[in-house]
């Protein structure tokens, strides 16, 4: 319906469009006042069919900083969806009230369904274990700000590489940029799936797998941490045996580069020890801030205001 753009999968955006969004976000950071009324009288609907406090706060903050308003709901239980209203009906209704929609849903493909019925742009704010494109934009924006470029570094990805959608999506996005070396850090049980390894091979990039963080840390420019969940293991012994190799503690950073950037999509549980937070190389809260700016840029772009 309509000729508006949506963001369902990160690959919906070309590399040039991602560059453009990052440019807008840089400009917002440089001159926020210029943008503070750009979305005046515009409304963002946050339709969260499952709760995600961080993502919803980020979208809300982004719209408010653009001078716009936010309406919506959180959790299926507080909306009519628990009474069985379809995604299609909810989206058609929300299209009547809002100028743009951010939608999160536990079922995979739900925002794609939503976009087919919406008469305004739809942003996928996470659909189960499937896609979460604004997280990937956030990661790219953070890398750009910390490294000055989206290519030309060694990135380590650590933790659950098997089920971690943020890692898969980030890899797919990074493959568009040159001169990136990948170090995959995980237990054997949580290795990258074969189809992603195939993708890396086909792209002809340099990559390797290692079994501990200590082994990888000295050569990294970026370390992307993810959670290793207890329920991913068959038994408690395996979990206890392996988890320490994939938890980042302060002393492990001694051999790391001075300008290492440590990223994490948040929320973390215990995979990054508290004492790492004060290290200047910890960038995960900075990353959350970048998430707001890149969402501001995305809203402006999809509304045709930038």
């Amino acid at each position: 319906m309509g000729d508006h753009r949506n963001l369902i999968n990160i690959t919906d955006l070309s590399a040039a469009e991602i560059d453009h969004l990052i440019e807008i976000a840089d400009d917002i950071i440089a001159d926020p006042v210029k943008y503070q009324d750009m979305c005046a009288h515009k409304k963002l609907a946050t339709l969260f069919f499952e709760p995600s406090t961080r993502t919803r706060l980020s979208f809300t903050a982004a719209m408010m900083e653009l001078g716009g308003n936010v309406l919506g709901f959180d959790q299926a239980s507080s909306s009519s969806t628990s009474k069985g209203e379809s995604v299609a009906d909810t989206i058609v209704m929300a299209s009547c009230y809002a100028d743009i929609i951010a939608m999160r849903h536990p079922k995979e493909g739900a925002p794609f369904v939503g976009a087919q019925y919406a008469s305004v742009p739809v942003i996928n704010a996470g659909d189960g274990g499937h896609f979460h494109p604004t997280q990937t934009l956030t990661d790219l924006m953070t890398i750009h700000r910390k490294k000055g470029s989206l290519g030309g570094y060694t990135i380590g990805m650590c933790g659950d590489l098997k089920f971690g959608r943020t890692v898969h999506s980030l890899i797919n996005a990074l493959l568009r940029y040159d001169d990136i070396k990948y170090v995959m850090i995980s237990p054997e049980e949580l290795e990258l799936p074969d189809y992603i390894k195939d993708t890396l091979d086909e792209a002809g990039v340099e990559w390797k797998e290692v079994r501990s963080l200590d082994e990888a840390i000295p050569e990294l420019d970026i370390l992307y941490m993810t959670r290793v969940q207890r329920e991913r293991f068959f038994n408690e012994e395996d979990y206890i045996r392996l988890k320490d190799s994939f938890i980042l503690r302060r002393e492990m950073l001694d051999p790391a580069k001075e300008d290492l950037a440590i990223l994490h999509p948040l929320p973390r549980v215990n995979e990054i020890a508290k004492d790492v937070d004060d290290d200047p190389r910890a960038c995960y809260f900075y990353q959350a801030l970048m998430g707001k700016y890149i969402r501001m840029a995305l809203i402006l772009y999809l509304l045709g205001l930038k």
Partner: peptide
């Protein structure tokens, strides 16, 4: 056949 797929719950699509 993916039980997490939206088509498992959304009617009329």
């Amino acid at each position: 056949r993916n039980p997490r797929c939206i088509t498992s719950v959304e009617e009329g699509i």
